[in-house]
Design a binder for these strands. Sequence first.
DNA 1: AAACATGACAACCGCGAGAGA
DNA 2: CTCTCTCGCGGTTGTCATGTT
Length: 280
Amino acid sequence: MGRQPCCDKLGVKRGPWTAEEDRKLISFILSNGHCCWRAVPKLAGLLRCGKSCRLRWTNYLRPDLKRGLLTDAEEQVVIDLHAKLGNRWSKIAAKLPGRTDNEIKNHWNTHIKKKLIKMGIDPVTHEPLDQKTRSTATTSQSVVTADSTTKSDEATKQLQQSPQSNFARDVLAADDSSPTESSTNTISTGGSSSISSSSSHDQDALVKWLLEEDPPTGDEPWLNFAGGVDVDEFSSIAGGPELPWDGATDWLLDYQDFGLGDSSLVDGSMINSSNGAATF
DNA sequence: AAACATGACAACCGCGAGAGA
DNA sequence: CTCTCTCGCGGTTGTCATGTT
């Protein structure tokens, strides 16, 4: 019967988002949440498909996102999780607060993959490349598995305990003396110790945790469609002492650039003016 | 300075899962 | 149970920035 396209190809804008579009989407979601993504562009006055809106929001506009390169510690976690989960980027991202699956996927493809290959590690199997060529009858444990019971476990524990904390930065700060290269070393090596069977108990526990859903906090204002969140409240959150996201995020700057402090942008009047059908 | 190569990341596409009618 | 719809995921492509020749 065929799948209905997610949106009409005609009349739907594609390509990079403009600041104006971002502003519309942000103001709409902050004040209304997202009911169903399919309806968002229409209600927000955007000539985009809902899918595009969702992607833009989750990967770029969401206020709890960290920006910038993954830290060494985060990279390490990604590698370890990838060894266990494979390309399940969303699961991996769920364990890295403030990071998106797309971001991690991109980072993997552009950085980590090459790094592992350079170190002689198959980025798919996480086994040594030369070992792989010599014999396929090797240990079923991945190369980085052993690491995961040591360094990575520490990181993942911290993540679990404080999902909103910027643990990676703390880890880095605590280990500031280590040069950038050291991250490479920790990845590869576990070195001699990495190719050993790790405790299956630890493995199971970690995998179990990995597969758990992150408990929703439930207080994200942009998730509350009916809430009609006051943007002033939101901005006070953003500027307050208890930032739910990294205060240095570019998003905040963008937010200010968009002039969202201006209530005229968020009280629905702007949206209504651009889309007469949308009323709240 | 121009052309080309490479890197980085935003965005798109197609598919599958799950929910609801 | 089947069908339809929406959402989310993972793979891939496109575009811009930066580096190199």
